[in-house]
């Protein structure tokens, strides 16, 4: 359809991150952009930047003094992790070599024995630390992949039916068609069952993938083939392992975008 003021209105709302609802406004804008309207494509980015002019009138705040240290402290693992993983774990090799050297020499001196124990416990502690770091890093990488898109939306899902205490957050980028669900308090399932994520459009659920919860009831799942650019609601059901094309099991998590 030819470019019109109506499209510019939709682009303006979209640039401000306002939910487009009713009469399929989002579908209309997507269709128009998909048809390759260069005017609207340029406007979308320009409007997003232009809106930040409004922030110039906001008084500058004074961050609490400890906040900077907290933020810089949180960078730590991301900076050292690549070296640890790509470098073949030099500390581990060194610690193992040291323990081996002590054993081979058959040194039984009390002082050396104490050092050997210290080395062993340090190695165990470092291994534990590495596992934690790797998990945290995987989470960060996963989140960053979705969050780096500037159209990311977030929704909280609440527990339903058999699992009222379940909680989840969904982050998704309509443009990148990627989404992440971070869930907690999920009940353990029998081995032949899995959780399945659904995205609703026009009242109909579409499969966005299956996932398992860890023994603590937590789950982190990235849906790389997010089925729909626009989502009205998200739900999680319990389904046969591998998933089903349409939900059959009980809904345990649900949230609506408006």
């Amino acid at each position: 359809m030819a470019h019109s003021e109506r499209h510019e209105e939709l682009v303006a709302a979209s640039a401000l991150g306002l939910p487009l609802l009713g009469e399929g406004e989002r579908a209309e804008l997507d269709r128009h952009l998909a048809e390759g309207c260069a005017v609207c494509e340029g406007l979308l980015a320009d409007f997003r930047g232009a809106a930040t002019a409004l922030a110039a009138g906001v008084p500058v705040a004074t961050p609490p003094p400890e906040l900077k240290a907290r933020i810089l402290g949180a960078l730590g693992p991301a900076r050292v992790a690549p070296r640890e993983t790509s470098g073949g774990l030099p500390w581990k090799a060194l610690a193992a070599a040291a323990v081996l050297a002590l054993l081979v020499l058959g040194v039984d001196d009390a002082r050396l024995r104490r050092q050997r124990e210290e080395l062993r416990s340090q190695t165990a502690a470092l291994e534990g630390k590495l596992r934690t770091t790797e998990t945290a890093l995987a989470e960060r990488v996963l989140r960053a992949r979705v969050l780096e898109n500037d159209d990311v939306q977030m929704l909280l899902l609440g527990g339903q039916g058999p699992q009222p205490d379940a909680r989840a957050r969904v982050f998704w980028s309509p443009r990148a068609r990627r989404g992440i669900i971070l869930a907690s308090n999920l009940a353990p399932l029998p081995p032949d069952r899995q959780y399945e994520l659904w995205v609703f459009q026009k009242g109909k659920p579409v499969n966005a993938g299956v996932f398992d919860a860890d023994p603590k009831g937590q789950a982190l799942f990235e849906s790389t083939e997010f089925p729909l650019p626009e989502a009205e609601a998200f739900a999680v059901t319990v389904e046969p392992r591998g998933g089903v094309p349409a939900p059959t099991g009980p809904i345990v998590l649900v949230g609506k975008t408006s």
């Binding site: 003021e5 510019e8 209105e9 401000l16 409007f47 930047g49 232009a50 809106a51 002019a53 409004l54």
Partner: peptide, 16 residues
Amino acid sequence: VKTRVRLGLMKLRERM
């Protein structure tokens, strides 16, 4: 309202 939002952003864009 739709017109105001659109025109407002248009003007900001030109000035920015």
